[in-house]
Amino acid sequence: MTHRLTAALAAATASALALTVATGAQAATWKYSLEEAIDEVQGVYATKFKEYIEANSDNEVQIFPFGTLGESNDTTELAQMGAIQFATASPGFTGSLIPELQVFLLPYVLPEEHAVLADFYQTSETINDMLAAKYEDKSLHLVDMYPEGEVVMTTKEPVTSPADLDGVKVRVMTSPMLIETYDAFGATPTPLPWGEVYGALQTNIIQGQENPMFFVESTKMYEVTDYITYAGHNNFTTAVVANKSFFDGLSDEDKTLVQEAANAAYEHIMDYQQGLTERSEAKILEAKPSMTVTHLTDEQRAPFREAAQQVREAFVNEVGGDAQAVLDGFEADIEASKARVAE
């Protein structure tokens, strides 16, 4: 166990003990960690979740924003251990724990339309049955999964084709499929912890990164890059997980409460995201008018889509197991969502 994780575990345990002493053994205070700040998308979701729980029960939810209990991998491990009850665990990190989750990282698989995305995450049997079962095998229970926004590339030089990424070091999360994606796109994928990204861009150790626009704005990534490119290749996905033993031990009433809170938070966060990308882009351009924003045309996206085929093949071949079934199920579920939204 790392020193950082040991410290985080001690902090979480001390917090739990203090709350038990202060409020009595009957009080249920649930700890919930984030990969983002409290005012970013995950924090907005968690705040609504907390509000619902506390308005409809005597339970309390204590939210720990990014960095409070360590990096994303640390907080997922804390949830597995039962030191915290809930955690945000994005597939970009948990793909190493559950390889099939890397399907969310495949370029040009997820739909771009907001309404289709909203329906897909709620109704997909692939997500809510097949993938949910894989969390159970890792001492986790999948509470919810939702998109956070279209991923954009921010770079120091313009990008309109894969050739423009030749030799460009692009920061990626520690996921084989993200590495495969940017390798296919012509870049040099460079895994880095999030806390090192701003400095690495500032010192030119890397020359690019990808994230939803709201995150580019809130973390000020635009200060150390000059170009933003919409390639339409993905939408950032995150998951809310609970410690499996904790969830299994809840009363039926509390299990229903958690699901209802997740439903309320899901509806809220999907409404919140309407126009969020555009608002964030406007803030960036106000802060840095020299920033160049480019939406690639269908013609410009074509070579990126072509390169994406080898990433899909790598996913099936390298992940193995249920990878093909997950990918096929994803595509079928997406088509079903498109049909429902079109009705």
Rank of each mutant, 00 (worst) to 15 (best):
V197H: 05
I98D: 04
T126F: 07
G67L: 05
R279L: 05
A22V: 01
T229Y: 05
K288F: 09
G24H: 08
L97H: 04
P111C: 06
V316R: 07
V240E: 06
D183F: 11
D166H: 10
G95N: 09
V224G: 03
E196W: 05
T292L: 05
S245I: 07
V168F: 01
L192Q: 05
Q26L: 08
E331K: 15
E217Y: 15
V224R: 13
P212T: 14
A314H: 14
T174G: 01
M81L: 14
E113Y: 06
F215K: 07
L97G: 03
T68H: 07
A314S: 15
E223A: 11
I205C: 00
L201C: 06
D328N: 15
Q26K: 15
V170W: 02
H233D: 13
L178A: 11
Q259Y: 00
M213I: 14
E150A: 12
M221K: 07
N235R: 11
I38W: 09
T29R: 07
K255H: 04
L296V: 11
Y272S: 05
A55N: 10
L131Q: 04
G320R: 04
F246A: 09
V170C: 04
T155Y: 04
R340C: 03
N56Q: 03
K255A: 05
D298L: 11
E51H: 01
E157I: 15
K156Q: 09
R312M: 06
E253W: 00
A89S: 14
A46K: 06
D333W: 02
L142C: 12
Q80L: 03
A10N: 13
R312G: 04
L285R: 07
I284N: 01
A163E: 13
K31N: 12
T181E: 12
E77D: 10
A325F: 04
N234M: 03
L296C: 12
D119Y: 03
L140H: 05
A8G: 14
D248K: 09
A37K: 14
Q309E: 11
F215W: 06
V258I: 10
R4V: 09
S139I: 04
H3W: 01
H3K: 12
A12Q: 06
A16G: 02
D333S: 02
Y230C: 06
H268A: 10
A89D: 08
M177P: 09
E157Q: 15
T20V: 07
A7P: 00
N73M: 15
L285K: 11
R171Y: 01
A12T: 03
E210D: 13
L97E: 07
E36A: 07
F214W: 07
D328T: 14
A261L: 02
A325T: 14
E150K: 08
T297R: 10
A55T: 04
T219A: 10
L296R: 12
A302N: 09
L285Y: 00
R4W: 03
P111W: 08
S290T: 12
Q202N: 10
E299M: 02
T13D: 09
A18L: 05
F185H: 04
T277R: 13
D129F: 12
D39L: 02
S15W: 10
F104C: 04
G149A: 08
A11I: 05
Y108F: 15
A22I: 01
